[in-house]
Nucleic acid binder design. Structure first.
Length: 231
DNA sequence: GCCAACGTTGGC
DNA sequence: GCCAACGTTGGC
């Protein structure tokens, strides 16, 4: 059931983001490595950010979602950053990821890490805002729901294949960063060795959940092989 | 384990 | 709506 699609999210499950969270989890918002990165600044060169991809992986991610209505198996998959903002607690679960690489990245996400919210499959694709991880990976309930577009009959309750995280709205970008702009920077960086030269958005265009690398750190290809472990 | 057929992604 | 790129499936 290939559905390497990104996904919208539903209200953070009945088992909401905080239901069984270790209470005192008020970790300081750890800024991505000291790098100067003003995260979420509108300059695309800075949209890649954070740590290395070694063990603790990227501290910054990019997650795609479709802001426009589209019916998939009878269900509207639309989920824009405005939709996220409108959720209770501005929080939702990121369900429906059905691609192993994307899933592995979901599983690597840590509390408080941030992700750029990317609008795909729409008039003007691009980065719309910033979200943060408020619940680490747990089983995606939609894989067991027969009437759900993301139902996966091959997944067993005692060994769920697919995971999701909960994300919370942080803010919109100061200005919308279009795919066109990102691509221009990516192209330029390929020549100059700039930080976006290996941006997964272009090197792995179908990956709906992807890590971003810090300005001068290792190329994404390394992260990629690290994350490659299991299907 | 190869690989052709098929399905999906997502920009255009 | 088209279609190229690419992931998945399943026969062998």
């Amino acid at each position: 059931m290939p559905n390497p699609r990104k996904r919208r999210a539903g209200t953070a499950g009945a088992a909401g983001p905080d239901s069984k969270r270790p209470a005192g989890k008020h970790t300081k918002t750890r800024k991505p490595t000291g790098t100067s990165t003003r995260v979420g600044d509108s300059s695309p060169e800075k949209t890649s950010a954070s740590k290395n991809c070694g063990n603790n992986q990227s501290s910054y991610w990019l997650m795609k979602s479709e802001p426009q209505s589209r019916i998939e198996k009878g269900v509207d998959v639309k989920f824009s950053i405005e939709d996220l903002k409108a959720e209770p607690k501005q929080t939702a679960c990121w369900d429906g990821v059905r691609n192993y690489q994307a899933r592995n990245f979901l599983r690597a996400m840590k509390l408080e890490q941030k992700a750029f919210f990317y609008h795909s499959n729409c008039k003007e694709p691009g980065i719309a805002g910033l979200v943060k991880i408020v619940k680490e990976a747990y089983p995606d309930h939609t894989q067991f729901e027969k009437n759900n577009p993301y139902y996966d009959p091959s997944s067993k309750e005692d060994n769920p294949k697919w995971s999701m995280v909960d994300v919370q709205f942080v803010r919109l970008m100061k200005r919308y960063i279009t795919l066109t702009e990102l691509k221009a920077n990516h192209q330029a960086h390929k020549a100059t060795g700039g930080p976006l030269k290996n941006m997964a958005l272009f090197t792995h265009p179908r990956l709906s959940v992807q890590p971003l690398t810090p300005g001068k750190s290792r190329p994404y290809s390394l992260c990629y092989s690290h994350a490659r472990m299991t299907p």
